Amino acid sequence: MTPNEFYQLRRKHELTKRAKKLVKECGNNTQDMIKKIAFKQEAGMFPKDYIERYDHTWKD
């Protein structure tokens, strides 16, 4: 296993653990939805054009 493959595997494992924790602990209120969306952006689950289009919608 190359170092890059190990890094990708480890990153996927950590993201999976965090995702399971978010699903278990978070409900459907606004703050929890913002946490879920921020996690998806960090994990790369949103396309770049989506982030650029809706980047300022969550800011107060």
Rank of each mutant, 00 (worst) to 15 (best):
M1C: 07
T2Y: 07
T2Q: 09
T2A: 13
P3N: 12
P3T: 07
P3V: 02
N4F: 10
N4D: 12
N4K: 05
N4S: 07
N4W: 06
E5H: 08
F6P: 00
F6T: 10
Y7D: 13
Y7W: 13
Q8H: 13
Q8R: 14
Q8C: 09
Q8M: 14
R10I: 06
R10D: 12
R10Y: 12
R10P: 00
R10S: 12
R10G: 03
K12I: 01
K12Q: 09
K12L: 07
H13K: 12
H13C: 05
H13D: 13
E14K: 07
E14V: 05
E14D: 06
E14C: 01
L15T: 02
L15G: 01
T16Q: 14
T16E: 15
T16I: 08
T16K: 13
T16A: 14
K17V: 13
K17T: 07
K17F: 03
R18V: 09
A19T: 02
A19L: 13
K20I: 14
K20W: 14
K20Y: 09
K21E: 14
K21I: 08
K21G: 03
L22M: 02
L22Y: 00
L22H: 01
V23S: 11
V23H: 15
V23W: 14
K24R: 11
K24T: 03
E25G: 04
E25C: 07
C26F: 02
G27H: 08
G27M: 02
G27F: 02
G27Y: 06
N28A: 11
N29R: 05
N29E: 06
N29D: 12
T30E: 12
T30F: 11
Q31C: 07
Q31K: 11
D32E: 15
D32G: 06
D32L: 05
M33S: 04
M33T: 03
M33C: 08
M33H: 03
I34R: 08
I34V: 10
I34P: 00
K35G: 00
K35F: 01
K36I: 03
K36L: 09
K36S: 01
I37T: 02
I37A: 04
I37D: 00
A38K: 14
F39V: 00
F39S: 00
K40I: 01
K40D: 03
K40A: 08
K40R: 12
Q41R: 11
Q41C: 03
Q41S: 09
E42V: 04
A43W: 00
A43V: 01
G44W: 03
G44H: 02
M45N: 10
M45I: 08
F46Q: 03
F46K: 03
F46T: 04
F46R: 02
P47I: 08
P47L: 15
K48E: 15
K48R: 14
D49A: 13
D49T: 11
D49L: 07
Y50M: 11
Y50E: 09
I51E: 11
I51T: 08
R53L: 13
R53K: 12
R53E: 15
R53I: 03
R53S: 06
Y54D: 05
D55S: 02
H56G: 05
H56S: 11
T57G: 01
W58D: 08
W58F: 15
K59G: 04
K59H: 06
D60C: 05
